[in-house]
């Protein structure tokens, strides 16, 4: 049956021009938002890079390998801060990763009745809501006294290992690492848990159906299937740890030095910026911007590496 002319017009014009314009307007609007976010990132990078230009011209790559931070002579290098940033976040990851993934596994399986599990999930996520200055204060008044005693014992017993070779005085790299671990724990736990919960229940049934135990199912099916999500959570956490400023500044000691001992004081790029920015001028500001730019790049590299890891593993499975 052919359509009458009237029906044809109806099909073509069933929706008013206004509705169609709103439609395409909405697509445009959301498109602008998406591009806008990307532009903000680019704008920050460009601006930081621009401000850093005098220092980049002055010190070049030597900035990355020099330990001298001397406002009097106007000579700057950020090696201790780069080292401190990487080491403190590495300590944080080493502590938070196993615990965070463990928490995620525990809270995604049906070990607990729902009534208990939900409040615990909520409380773990609430850890992320505590302001970092509160973490810093807690670190000074609670964590340092506890860790110092443990540190003294480690130093006395295992002082021949370079990692424990100095006597802890209070603040230091190890405190920063532990504080950061607590701060990023909820990120790893929450995102890993989401990834584990999102694994289709059919896969679990398939595994059980083939005679796998709960542990075999968990380690051979569920965790591999959630792998990319878990790595994503770890990377987000690593980015947070590297950029975290307030709590780190309060407990790391802010010393411009590199010492293999974790009990010694140190500083990170973020703590350097927090300490010096208010009083800096001229080339010092530019050098701080350079350091910020380096932090930016480190984060970028970490994320790219993570993406590569995820792709590799995906190809293999």
């Amino acid at each position: 049956m052919a359509l009458s002319n009237q029906q044809v017009t109806e099909i073509k014009r069933a929706r008013s021009p206004l509705a169609r314009q709103l439609d395409s307007g909405f697509v445009w609007l959301t498109g602008m938002f998406a591009v806008g976010v990307a532009l903000v990132l680019v704008a920050i990078a460009v601006r930081v890079g621009w401000e850093a230009l005098p220092a980049i011209q002055q010190f070049g790559a030597g900035f990355l390998t020099s330990s001298r931070w001397d406002p009097v002579e106007d000579i700057y290098g950020a090696l201790p801060q780069i080292y401190g940033t990487l080491v403190s976040s590495l300590i944080a990851l080493l502590i938070a990763m196993p615990i965070g993934i463990g928490v995620a596994i525990f809270l995604s399986e049906d070990f607990l009745p729902n009534k208990i599990q939900r409040p615990i999930v909520f409380m773990v996520e609430l850890l992320a809501a505590i302001p970092s200055v509160v973490y810093g204060l807690w670190g000074i008044f609670v964590l340092i006294p506890i860790l110092r005693n443990m540190g003294v014992a480690l130093n006395a017993g295992l002082g021949w290992i370079p990692l424990f070779s100095t006597r802890p005085t209070g603040p230091g790299m190890y405190v920063a690492g532990v504080i950061l671990a607590i701060m990023i724990l909820p990120i790893i736990a929450a995102i890993s848990r989401d990834a584990l919960v999102a694994v289709p229940p059919e896969l679990r049934q398939a595994s059980y159906g083939l005679g796998a135990t709960r542990w075999e199912t968990l380690f051979k099916v569920i965790l591999p299937a959630a792998f990319s999500g878990i790595v994503g959570g770890i990377m987000l956490a690593m980015g947070r740890a590297m950029g975290e400023t307030m709590a780190t500044t309060m407990v790391i000691g802010n010393a411009n030095k590199i010492n293999p001992s974790l009990f010694d004081q140190g500083s990170t790029i973020a703590s350097l910026l927090a300490n010096q920015f208010a009083e800096a001028s001229g080339l010092q500001i530019s050098s701080l911007m350079y350091a910020a730019f380096v932090l930016f790049l480190i984060t970028l590299i970490v994320n790219v590496l993570a993406e590569l890891v995820v792709r590799r593993v995906r190809m293999k499975v």
Partner: peptide, 11 residues
């Protein structure tokens, strides 16, 4: 053994 309603190969 069991075969399910929805095909569920492992990834």
């Amino acid at each position: 053994g069991m075969v399910f309603q929805k095909p569920n190969p492992f990834p």
